[in-house]
């Protein structure tokens, strides 16, 4: 008969109404500021700069190569290169970013900067509470705000962080082995005593431009 379905539907909503007061399993809402869902490892929200060691300024992996700045689709990254150089994780002298700003309001969390970075310097963060009451300064994150330690990277994305660490260690080992081999060769040459004084330093693989 006409109207049966309506009565069934009314019964169903009534059951939901009463049930939501009785059983808490029905209510799937997470009352956000007080309750939170457990952090999700795959979450990627906003990029940050990884640094090694204790000092964020000294340990920044970024070498200001500006690849991310060029690749960024909405152009939310702004980099200024430094005049001087500092040693990177392998001990090679590199330039570093004197300024590194990302505009939160422009960033679209596409992760392309992370994918193009050859130095594992920029990674995605899980921090999502980026709201601010300062419309201009508050939305532009500078390099100090962006810098986060490698340990932090390990806590938010443990799998990816250990992969990155392994890769970097491998690279470092390779470089060291090479340096060692070069040093040994130099030593051997020096020992042979025939060659002139020194080979030019290790400058095969340049950083930036």
């Amino acid at each position: 008969m006409l109207g049966e379905g309506i009565l069934k539907g009314l019964a169903e909503t009534a059951r939901n109404f009463a049930g939501s007061y009785v059983s808490r399993e029905r209510l799937t809402t997470v009352q956000y500021p007080e309750e939170r869902v457990a952090p999700i490892e795959a979450a990627r929200v906003f990029p940050f700069l990884v640094y090694d060691g204790a000092d964020w300024e000294a340990g920044l992996r970024c070498v200001a190569c500006q690849i991310c700045e060029k690749e960024c689709p909405p152009k939310c990254i702004y980099i200024e290169k430094s005049k001087d150089k500092k040693p990177d994780y392998v001990g090679k002298l590199q330039i570093y970013p004197a300024r590194f700003d990302i505009d939160v309001s422009v960033c679209m969390s596409c992760q392309i900067c992370v994918e193009v970075c050859p130095f594992e310097a920029i990674k995605m963060d899980t921090e999502f509470e980026l709201a601010t009451d300062n419309r201009f300064g508050g939305l532009l994150h500078d390099r100090k705000q962006l810098a986060k330690s490698n340990e932090y990277f390990h806590t938010i994305h443990p799998t990816e962080a250990s992969e990155v660490d392994a890769r970097l260690a491998e690279e470092k080992a390779k470089v060291e082995a090479k340096a060692k081999a070069a040093a040994e060769a130099a030593a051997a040459k020096a020992a042979a005593g025939a060659a002139p004084a020194a080979t030019p330093g290790d400058k095969p693989a340049g950083g930036g431009e």
């Binding site: 909503t13 939901n16 109404f17 049930g19 939501s20 007061y21 029905r26 209510l27 799937t28 809402t29 009352q31």
Partner: peptide
């Protein structure tokens, strides 16, 4: 309405 849709 919230309760009918199992919300708070």
């Amino acid at each position: 309405l919230g309760r009918m849709q199992n919300r708070y």
